[in-house]
């Protein structure tokens, strides 16, 4: 037996329980925050404190952008990300794959609901992990060649870059964009299921729910959590894909930067991102060369 296996043998219980724990905290907890933040692009329409945007959709973009600024201004962000997210996710994923490989699904013979969830849990784990890698690589590590329009993430342009990274250049649908968007839909759904179901099984693993009645009750709770998160995930996605107007988003984003950091900074920023192809092709980019026209007029319904 190699030392690696010996280590696994000796600390098997600890590793399994850490694996379970990592899925709930921090990964699950982060996902709740992340989806809450992202879905603010939709629920932000109700945000009374949004004051830059004029439309309901715009208020969503503003709220979302506000959240993004808040997160990006947290101290020691990279360290937190590595320690609280990337390492736990890597740990959870690697062990998860190793554990999943010890099973063999038999849904075709035993099509019980629980068995389907067991199979789905493993499938969504694989999908979710691939999705996370893509998601982080494109929007965090700047592997822009993997996005439909080569979009590089900028948290100053969170909503608009997201729309571009999902749909295509300037938030206009492209074939690659459709594929990526469907991918996001699947990825987000998979992760939400994985989390909700994982929450349910974790309660058994740790021995919180013992009786079948308790497991059923906790199942209802987890279903609700899953449903709410699913709604949040889907609405965020829908928000970026169908609700947020790209040009309006860029406008709002730039005005927020201007408000927060001043006009100089905005110009610097624009300079820095001048070569962003999707901005170059955008109507806003062209408009930006003209004098600032002032706030858009209120639309009377």
């Amino acid at each position: 037996m190699t030392d690696g296996q010996g280590f696994l043998q000796r600390h098997y219980h600890l590793l399994r329980r850490l694996h379970s724990l990592a899925g709930v905290v921090p990964i699950g907890a982060f996902m709740i925050i992340h989806l809450t933040t992202n879905s603010s692009v939709v629920w932000g329409a109700l945000n009374g404190r949004a004051h830059i945007a004029e439309s309901a959709a715009g208020r969503g973009i503003e709220t979302f952008q506000h959240e993004v600024h808040f997160i990006n201004n947290l101290p020691l962000l990279l360290l937190t990300e590595i320690g609280v997210l990337w390492l736990p996710i890597a740990f959870h994923a690697i062990l998860g794959v190793a554990f999943a490989l010890t099973g063999s699904n038999n849904v075709s013979r035993y099509g019980y609901q629980g068995n389907k969830r067991y199979a789905l849990q493993r499938l969504t784990g694989y999908i979710g992990f691939l999705f996370i890698v893509y998601h982080v690589a494109t929007l965090r590590w700047g592997w822009s060649f993997l996005t439909p329009a080569g979009t590089t993430w900028s948290h100053y342009y969170a909503a608009s870059t997201l729309a571009a990274a999902l749909k295509g250049a300037a938030g206009q649908w492209s074939v690659a964009g459709v594929i990526v968007s469907i991918g996001y839909f699947i990825g987000v759904s998979a992760l939400v299921f994985h989390f909700a179901n994982g929450l349910w099984t974790a309660a058994i693993t740790w021995g919180l729910t013992i009786s079948q009645a308790a497991q059923r009750r906790w199942g209802y709770v987890c279903s609700c959590v899953g449903a709410v998160l699913m709604l949040a995930g889907w609405s965020a996605l829908a928000g970026f894909l169908f609700v947020a107007d790209y040009d309006e988003a860029v406008q709002i984003e730039e005005r927020m930067v201007e408000q927060m950091y001043g006009h100089e900074y905005l110009l610097e920023l624009k300079e820095k991102f001048a070569d962003r192809p999707e901005i170059g092709r955008s109507a806003v980019r062209q408009a930006a060369t003209r004098p600032y026209p002032g706030p858009a007029p209120l639309i009377e319904e």
Binding site: Y12, H13, R16, R17, F99, T102, G103, N106, Y110, Y112, G114, N115, R117, Y118, A119, Q121, T201, I204, T205, G207, T209, I210, S211, Q212, Q215
Partner: peptide
């Protein structure tokens, strides 16, 4: 810890033993 919570066990048990409760 190797249990994957598929819970087929309790469904196929001919004696209706609450196996998943035992596991928990």
């Amino acid at each position: 810890n190797d249990c994957g919570n598929a819970q087929n066990c309790v469904r196929v048990c001919p004696k209706d033993i609450p196996l998943t409760e035992s596991i928990a």
